[in-house]
Design a protein around this nucleic acid. Structure first.
Lengths: 360, 360
DNA sequence: CGCGTGAGTTAAACCGTTTACACAGTCTGG
DNA sequence: CCAGACTGTGTAAACGGTTTAACTCACGCG
């Protein structure tokens, strides 16, 4: 019945707390208490134990500790991919904050597949992590939402604090911390910036129906047009995913399709802007001389191409998520934080002095 | 003495295997067997149990399972940062392969600090993960190496297979799987490509003493020069880190320092190439018309700027690491794999027809 | 009819921690 | 001088699974 390896090969096994206790001639309870440091102990005993720990190179077994009821020090994060810059930077923030407090992160990737997201959460239920952070953008449908609500409750029961990062709340009765950032306000500011420079024909690149992030951004764009009394032309809204190639392709198609009917471009993220910019250059149009452009995200490479863009606090998003999740002792908090975004002005916008510029 | 929550608040607790057993009127052993599927069982019992599982929304506690001696399904990866493209892509490969087999990844970041790397490993010892994958480039010194060897042994004892990814072996008696890629060969090919196009003055950008990756690349560069009988001029080797800004800065300095003394550039990675290219353009020099350029890494954005570069199988590096680690039942394997690199020819190199081009 | 046989199930040991409680000293104050 | 507080340590019961060995029951065979 025992599985203790006394038998054959004698493959070494890690030292246990019992080995330490034996070597230091104390009980296991004493060792445990001294290592956790939360109990009174005699200096002499303490040094005996610490020596035994060192000599045996003892580290505690995380499984045993977790089972014994100590909350494991771990946070989990579920992202789309680890290669896309936005996710990577949020993850970076999560890692920073986690590392500050001596934690590692469990990372699950979904490739944008809601099914895989749900599967990852199911797996994470087993781990009883302190926090489970779901980051980014999804295209929620009814069935998905219902299942997610159930899973969220299950996580709470398992003792994991759920955090939604850059994604809307699940509902009033689902306990989750929500850390969003101001997509609408950022898009409003970006569009206003172009409008103030005299642009009236502003192409919006990167519409994607159903995805909450993109919808907020386009809503901000429309709101700014309305606020400035500039007519909204649906033909200026171009569907595309968020990848650079797509920005390149869509801009190229647009330019090839007929005469240019815009003087400025607002893209749903910086990668689209970079792609669109490349397409423009190929057609002999430069930014900002011929076309003004504003992006969204403020990723590091955007500084190199002097792109005016909306700064998103990626890292802070991640840090805040972790901080809030670990703050409350008992999981099941519900909180809603909205981080600000602001426009970073570089050199990709020029005033537009159009034909009869001053009407209205 | 018990901690079972019968007392006050009645906060719900996750269902345990005992709850399932009770509900299905069988013993816990039966439930365990049926769920693990590795034992004969009667169909009637099976469906009873499965129903109870569904009704109670039972998932097994990973800690308990781990403690009971079942190898937890988890792989760990330790990287520099999650935002740098090379690491991100390797991590992506690791995640892919892990996800394929239903595993999540634990990720530790070091920020390039050897101390933090060692700390992460120490933390990972507690987890008893199946595999611990250390990725990338370091600047090993004597003390670090000694400690790492000790930690590597400890990991083996804990049952975790150590994998070194893009980093040289620790030593013949340290059990680790090593997955490298051909830095030397790639650099040799890249340099040869430029030499064959008639270039004799090739700037090497990105030398960094002590870092194994960069040293292999510069060695390949020198070997190619020697093989083609082109004299090696140390003044053409420029120190720099691997960041884009640095490439921009160093190239700018070089151009400002005096007349241009090179016709081609080989950079230690694509990001340096992008930076250097930007600096060249600012001075009115274009690639490839005025200066030929070859990079290293073949990151996605490099296709957009038509950069000829050395393809590194980032994702495959990660996938191979996981695959090999999980292959062997017992940890402590030692294996050395060298993945190939190859040059991807785009449009950043032009033949150089120099003054008196044909001497030697 | 006795008995092995094998499929299906169970009781109990065990994994390595933490912690509630008991207990032995040592001080302190009345 | 003794009750009571305080210190430090030990004992043993959890935590929630897996696994071994034993047991039950029907069945087929000699």
């Amino acid at each position: 019945m025992p599985r203790r390896d006394v038998s054959g090969d004698g493959r070494p096994r890690p030292a246990t707390i019992r080995d330490v206790a034996r070597r230091a001639s104390v009980s296991v309870a004493t060792v445990s208490r001294i290592l956790s440091g939360t109990y009174p102990n005699a200096p002499a005993t303490r040094s005996k134990v610490m020596r035994a720990v060192r000599e045996l190179d003892y580290v505690a077994n995380a499984h045993a500790r977790g089972l014994a009821g100590v909350r494991p020090k771990s946070v989990a994060i579920v992202v789309n991919t680890v290669t896309s810059p936005h996710y990577a930077h949020v993850a970076q923030g999560v890692h920073e904050e986690a590392a500050r407090t001596g934690r590692l992160c469990t990372v699950g990737t979904t490739g944008g597949d809601p099914e895989r997201e749900l599967a990852a959460i199911q797996l994470l239920r087993e781990e009883h992590a302190e926090a489970v952070i779901l980051v980014g953008n999804i295209n929620p449908d009814e069935a998905y939402h219902a299942r997610m609500v159930g899973y969220a409750r299950a996580l709470a029961v398992a003792g994991s604090q759920l955090v939604l990062c850059g994604r809307p709340p699940l509902g009033p009765d689902v306990p989750a911390i929500v850390v969003e950032y101001d997509n609408h306000g950022g898009a409003f500011a970006a569009t206003s910036h172009l409008l103030s420079a005299g642009h009236k024909r502003i192409l919006f690149l990167g519409r994607q129906a159903g995805y909450t992030t993109q919808e907020s951004r386009i809503a901000g764009y429309r709101a700014a047009l309305a606020a400035h009394g500039v007519p909204h032309d649906p033909a200026l809204e171009v569907d595309s995913t968020m990848e650079r190639r797509e920005g390149y392709r869509m801009m190229r198609e647009r330019l090839d399709a007929g005469p240019r009917d815009f003087t400025a471009v607002f893209t749903s993220n910086d990668q689209l802007a970079a792609g669109a910019r490349a397409a423009l250059r190929e057609r002999g149009l430069s930014v900002p001389e011929d076309v003004s452009m504003v992006g969204f995200d403020d990723l590091p490479p955007s500084a190199d191409i002097d792109l005016t863009t909306v700064h998103v606090p990626h890292e802070e998003l991640g840090r805040t998520a972790v901080r809030l999740a670990l703050k409350s002792e008992t999981p099941g908090s519900a909180e809603h934080v909205l981080l600000g975004t602001h426009i970073v002005v570089r050199n990709s916008v020029r005033p537009h002095v159009g034909e009869a510029s001053a009407t209205d």
